[in-house]
Each structure stands twice: as C-alpha cells, then as structure tokens.
Design a protein around this nucleic acid. Structure first.
Lengths: 136, 136
DNA sequence: GACCTAACTTGCATTTTGCAAGTAATTCGG
DNA sequence: CCGAATTACTTGCAAAATGCAAGTTAGGTC
C-alpha cells in the first residue's frame, strides 16, 4: 500500500488535509482518475484502513474515515512531512515543521484523539498542503 | 518516491537488511526485474538518496550507499516497520519491535552513526526481514 | 419535470512493469 | 592464456496498470 502512489496520496489527504469525500479527493489537485480513485478507496477499505459512511445530510455523498489501523499510520505520515520539509521544496513552513518535529508525540496524540472523536481536523491543524483547501 | 513500490523496497533493503549490491537487491526475493531495478537505482541516485561506489575488491561490482538525505528517511522506515508489525503478519518478533518503538531515538541515532561510518549494519541489527540474508 | 450533482463505471489509448534473452566487462581456475 | 562463470545492466515484447473522457444511476434543488 505504501508502494502505491495513489493510496499514499489518499491517506495523506485524509490525514493532512482532512479531506473526506470522493469529490474532495478527486478535486484535490493531484490528477487522480476516477476509476483509480474508486479502486484505491475500495482497497483501503478492504485493508481495514478506512471505513465508508453515508453522509448525514446528502444520500449521494459518502464520507471516508480512518480506522484505528489507519490512524496508526499517522507517525509515518508525520515523518514523511518532516523529511519532505527538510529535503524537498514542499512550501511547508519550516518553523511549523520543526516545531512539530520537536513535539511528535503531542501532535500524534492530539490528532489520534480528534480522529477517534470523528473530528477530521488535519494532523497539523494550521498547515495547508498544496491544492484547494476544502474548508476555504 | 514513496509512491513507488520498487523504490520503497530498495530503500527498505538498504536500511533493514543492509543490502548493497545490484545482485543482492535482485536476489532479495521480491521479484524485481532487472530493468526496473537498474532504473530505480538510477532514480534514487539522481534524487540524492543513494550514492554509487565501485567495490574495492571486484571491479564488476558496485555498492550502493545511503546519502545523508537517504539516511534521513530512516524514521519513516522505522515507523513502517512498527506499523507493519502491529497490523500485518510480517513475522517480525513483537518484543523486538516493541522495544524499538520505545527507543526510537536511540535506534535511529545508532543507525545514523553506523551508516555515516560506512558500516551497513541494518537499522535493527538482529532483525531479519523475509528473504535471503546476504550475510548468511 | 428539468437540470445539476455525487459517485462511480466503461472503453480505449498510453505508460509501466514483467519476462527472458542478450551484451560487455571482470574474475577465477585449469 | 583461455574458457567458464559472474556482475551489472540492456533490449524486445507481452501483460498489467494507469490516463482520459464519455457514460450511467441515484439523489437534490427549484
């Protein structure tokens, strides 16, 4: 799964951008095609990493949520962000990433709590990854 | 690069199994084809993650080594190992992984020092990943 | 009801990977 | 020295995956 580009981007979008719907993922700016997106979401579900829920306000819409198993991937994503900020041109604010690197356990514990409580606030709440912000 | 299955396996083999040569990677049990292996090694080199060195004892052989940038990927690999041990059937000894999880910084600092000193001992020195052990 | 939206599905073109044979340089043993 | 084996790729082609864009179905709004 980590060897699959699209699955990784989906997980990142869930964790780092708080995206939740098919439409949001599709419009996230990464250029994933509809069939691949559908296929990967299904796969992540069958791996037990995400669950699919019906939206409370619109029957057409489905929401994707991280499972416990999926939430346990957060340390990996945080390390990827930190590595990316240090070695690549990601546009991530260096001070923010440095601060997060110094407070890994706090960051992860807070995110875990939120996600368990169904609050999709991203791993780093004030950090915007390239692409449209769904709350903007 | 983390979205590419083969690149990820190569990095894992470098860090977790201490593999260094084309032949070792090719025979590592993962079924990578020769052209893909060659292509990915080149790519990892051009990304600045590994360097290529001639072997001191055999002109046919090349050794691949992690750069500083590559070594900085170790926290990600360690988190992947920990996640894998908890959620997948990896055959990893649970006590070992738990111990490593509790001593992340020590493990990473030790590995970093070794790798800088050109000692390719794996991230977790007594941990064997599935596949042939090159030192066997 | 007409029109739009959300979540896919489908057909086909393009790209990537898998398979196996091949090549060139180097090493080893008789 | 020479033949055989080894090391690190390269190549041609088949198979698999992805990219592109049109299409379908169910749901929502006016």
């Amino acid at each position: 799964m980590f060897g699959d580009r699209w699955s990784l981007l989906i997980i990142r979008d869930l964790m780092v951008r708080g995206l939740r719907t098919y439409r949001e993922f599709h419009r996230s700016g990464e250029g994933i095609s509809t069939s691949i997106l559908a296929n990967r979401l299904r796969k992540l579900e069958s791996f037990g990493i995400i669950t699919i829920e019906e939206d409370a306000t619109d029957r057409r819409r489905t929401n994707y949520r991280l499972t416990e198993k999926g939430i346990d991937l957060a340390p990996i994503l945080l390390e990827l962000l930190i590595w990316g900020a240090r070695h690549e041109k990601t546009g991530a604010p260096c001070e923010l990433i440095d601060k997060m690197a110094k407070n890994r356990e706090r960051v992860l514990a807070d995110a875990r709590q939120r996600w368990r409580d169904r609050d999709p606030t991203p791993l780093l709440p004030n950090f915007e990854v390239s692409g449209r912000d769904h709350r903007g």
